[in-house]
Design a protein around this nucleic acid. Sequence first.
DNA 1: TATTGTTATACTCTATAACTATA
DNA 2: TATAGTTATAGAGTATAACAATA
Lengths: 145, 145
Amino acid sequence: MPDLDHGDDVAAVNALRSGVMRLSRRLKHQRVDESLSPTEISVLGTLARCGSATPGELARKEHVQPPSMTRIVALLETKGLVSLEPHPEDRRQKVVKQTEQAEVMLEEARRKRNEFLAALADGLDEDEWAKLRAAAPVLEKLAHL
Amino acid sequence: MPDLDHGDDVAAVNALRSGVMRLSRRLKHQRVDESLSPTEISVLGTLARCGSATPGELARKEHVQPPSMTRIVALLETKGLVSLEPHPEDRRQKVVKQTEQAEVMLEEARRKRNEFLAALADGLDEDEWAKLRAAAPVLEKLAHL
DNA sequence: TATTGTTATACTCTATAACTATA
DNA sequence: TATAGTTATAGAGTATAACAATA
């Protein structure tokens, strides 16, 4: 385990928390699609990686409560971005899958996101950008440890 | 400007956004003080660094609208964590300062935060932790570019 | 009896619009 | 006329509690 007693780590921890909270607020407003909340986009991203998942699995991965995921999945289904199928082995559960429309949407979203971050990245030098690139997967890991 | 056309950067951008959003959700729940929202804590952190600021300055730094900052400052004042003084040169403005109680609280908060992150950090190796440490200030910079 | 998911409800945080006071 | 801050109101997102269906 990293030694958190050092002053450097204490400062880093503060910067990390503060940076994550403020940046999340900015990203929340810089939506790739006005009709999609950050969590909805994140769910679609998860489905794109995992193929499919049950509402319960999605709730655990996104760190929201089951009733919240029920609502999110229902909204995504209304928008035609996911389909719900019965679970093959357990009739209590459901299987959430992304539709083809979601794949098209994600591709478009990726393009817009890159434009936004490219604009932000104008203020970063190559070294700073490299540090972010290196930390990105660690942030993801930290998010669901 | 970093070249965002590369596949690596596209993947990093996705991981960055997704990681920041999910981690922010976790941090939101892992509050150092149940009665303090993440933005309230962030405002206190800013005041600890800058000494004092006007509500308008705080709103810009935290990326919230002025009416939201009015409410946040009012809540912090109710809790005895900030004091409001008249601006010496402009009677429209106010000066927000942290109280001694806030300093004590922040010290306690830092201790609890470190416990929480130390627990999380159990799942990271030294190399991953170093990457986070390096990226933390860049995240902060990105948050208010 | 435990678990998955849903329904009903309430809360927290933030935004927008309209207003007041000062520059 | 422009700016700093406030008041009033609305909306988005999530949580908790209670419930239904299935294991």
